[in-house]
Design a protein around this nucleic acid. Sequence first.
DNA 1: CTGTTAGCGCATTCAG
DNA 2: CTGAATGCGCTAACAG
Lengths: 344, 344
Amino acid sequence: MTIKEIAQLAGVSSAAVSRYLNGGYVSEEKKEQIKKVIQETGYQPSAQARILRTKKACLVGVVVPKINSESISRVTAGIEQVISRRGYQMLLASTDNNPEKEITYLKLFENYPVDGIILIGTVITGEHRKFLKSTKVPVVVVGQYTKYANCIYHDDYGAGKAMGRIAAQAADGGKVAYIGVTREDKAVGISRMDGFCAGMKAAGAELSEDYIRQAEFTMDSGYQAALELLEEKKDIRVISCATDTIAAGAIEALLSHSRREIPKEAENAGGRMQYILSSSPVQVTGFGDNQLLKAVTGGIPTVHFGYKTSGIRGAELLLDVIERGEKIPIEMKLGFRVVEKENP
Amino acid sequence: MTIKEIAQLAGVSSAAVSRYLNGGYVSEEKKEQIKKVIQETGYQPSAQARILRTKKACLVGVVVPKINSESISRVTAGIEQVISRRGYQMLLASTDNNPEKEITYLKLFENYPVDGIILIGTVITGEHRKFLKSTKVPVVVVGQYTKYANCIYHDDYGAGKAMGRIAAQAADGGKVAYIGVTREDKAVGISRMDGFCAGMKAAGAELSEDYIRQAEFTMDSGYQAALELLEEKKDIRVISCATDTIAAGAIEALLSHSRREIPKEAENAGGRMQYILSSSPVQVTGFGDNQLLKAVTGGIPTVHFGYKTSGIRGAELLLDVIERGEKIPIEMKLGFRVVEKENP
DNA sequence: CTGTTAGCGCATTCAG
DNA sequence: CTGAATGCGCTAACAG
């Protein structure tokens, strides 16, 4: 079905149909005819062709590192909230934590009909910078700092520092271990961890080199790293993890490790859980304030970032440049809130 | 940058550039010139215009009810796997469990450049049926049965039945409560629950009307429902939930409820957790085999569905109709696997 | 108010 | 091998 066919069936020009569709001047009489034909045929105008003409899609593309993440869903919820209010829709592309795919999808969105792009960043490579510098479509980066685009990021260093203090206190003179992520990720891999070290120092403690492990952004990976740690080092009091997801893996490791360590008589589900969560000398901390984790464990020390807020602000920034051509670059840093163990 | 400008700069016709881009006949000489100009300008052909001509986008659109879900991410992982191997890319649209938005995004994908659509279904309304019947673009529905499109769904009834048996056994003569979801969702709301009832009956038990609650697909909602249940009924031995997410909420409710119920001397973190997970007479079951939940709790009885498989099969089905114009309709039912508590 | 005309950026005949 | 010409489906002037 094309606009031309509709026009013929209704006995008018295609321009009239177009005007009918877009609220231009059409006589009542013709309006009726057109309406009738459209209903009969179930005609839907091709958004594609329209966009080719108007250069306006009312669509924003969002590139995310993964789909199954509470923090990311909070960001996208924030984005959705503001763009839908302004008549836009959102398309997601998941890169599965693969920086190459990130570029691929960025380029996809660059040439497909979206008015702007939000990149929920992980690693900013040279390719990324090149893209950001050269692209004509408005981009805002959420979750990472970059000088090549409007960006809005979190105070990872501050959050790390706060958590470093907490970990040092909780360890109470004992050893603290840290499971981080690749330092290619400036926000989570570097700032968060460096802040953590600083926090520990401020509390008079120190993070020893060989109590540090690196994991992927997955539970499995956290599990492996924590297990390794627990087997190698017998004096760990706190395992701090760069994300709550990793922390969940660490908790799992504690659980499975304790099976081999605790006395036989405590070898039942309840006993083990008790061992883990209170009697165990090992405490786990995270970042991100994952709600599922909090719900089923009663909560671990973690940090709440303004993920939804970053989505909201990010979308606002993007729409400002899309609609008002706002030209002056902006970078925005968002704070955090420490979440101590709930239900104390 | 348009193909025309490139052609001028290279001193050739736009057709030559087009051929260069698409592997047609171009002399080595001109190839060089074009290549040079393209590199200098960083020209990227407009996918949009190309698609308008070729009617081929190498893109599939996936409509999902929410973003932050392990089961859904497993489905999309399956889809990704097969389509990327075949040179396609995937765009996601999240509807936030809102059937209206589902239609909106379905229509978006209908008119935007995608070659096919996968709908991860929740509620199939009349609007849905209308869309499926009338649309020209290939659609496959995953997770729900429908006769209006190729579909691939899970044996929710069978899974429910298996879990009903387990719950009845676990209750050991005591009361079983069930937290379901809207019956507008045929798979989860009806089949799963009806199967559950059947399973209990088969085990010689019965699910009483007033031990049934309805929740949304969220933890919070599960929390509320479970709390209500726990306060009203004092003889519950098992709370079975329609999803693991809801189950997580139920566990949280158990946790918070127990605070008011258990003796003061057990009022510390470990004691409470122990109470919940072993001493407590209340057991929680779910569906979906959520890995995070399993990791941090040690696992509850649940059911593993072939979510990733359904994504794989769904994508294969879709590509078959896109590329080979496969016309004969298919419906496919996938089995399940019961997951008893791990680490027994 | 209306129809005609001219592209949006590209791929594809069809003569050379 | 190549360029000129045509049209994908639509909207935006433009002159009625």
